[in-house]
């Protein structure tokens, strides 16, 4: 059972990284909008899993993306950040009891899912784009990229969760 979970997470890691760098980074919708869905790994990581492990894995995940995109450490920083704040986000999205109940993402109602995924993506993208642009002259560009990329990412991540979640029963 445990081995199975580790295996699934490894496969998920590889598939998400490859999808991101080979496919989704070349969409360039309207010239500059790309969805970043590899953070799905952090979002669906078991809620009761080890937090330190998640922070470390997020760093590796972000760094892998950075290697492909020649972006230094911006993805690593953004991933580590959302991995660290994930317990808080979970708490206000699903209520304080998320740690003791075995909540399945697909079984909760849409509003809760949306607030969880939405906040995770938004925090990730704010850190990501502020580090990438790193210049107060481009504040408008920062807000624009964050907003549009977030909308794009949230839509794709929510549909991915809906499509790939196991049906109840």
């Amino acid at each position: 059972m445990l081995n199975n979970e580790i295996f699934i997470n490894i496969i998920r890691f590889i598939v998400l990284v490859l999808t991101q760098v080979l496919l989704l980074n070349h969409i360039d919708f309207l010239g500059y909008i790309n969805p970043y869905i590899y953070i799905l790994f952090i979002i669906v990581f078991p809620f009761t899993g080890n937090k330190s492990l998640l922070i470390f894995l997020s760093f590796i995940l972000g760094l892998t993306i950075d290697f492909f995109l020649d972006s230094g450490g911006i993805h690593a920083a953004a991933c580590v950040f959302i991995a660290y704040i994930r317990p808080q986000v979970l708490k206000y999205s699903f209520g304080i009891s998320y740690e003791y109940n075995t909540i399945k993402m697909s079984n909760t109602d849409f509003i809760k899912q949306f607030s969880y995924v939405g906040s995770m993506v938004l925090f990730n993208h704010i850190v990501l784009f502020s580090l990438e642009i790193f210049n107060t002259n481009h504040l408008l560009l920062l807000l624009k990229s964050t907003l549009f990329s977030s909308i794009f990412s949230i839509i794709i991540i929510l549909s991915a969760i809906t499509i790939f979640s196991k049906k109840p029963r």
Binding site: I55, F56, F59, G62, L63, D66, D70, S71, G72, G73, I74, A76, A77, V80, F81, A83, Y84, L131, F134
Partner: peptide, 15 residues
């Protein structure tokens, strides 16, 4: 978190 975040920021500033 602080350690890994600092490493990332360091790598970012290097670029």
């Amino acid at each position: 978190f602080i350690a890994l975040f600092s490493i990332s920021i360091f790598l970012t500033i290097q670029t």
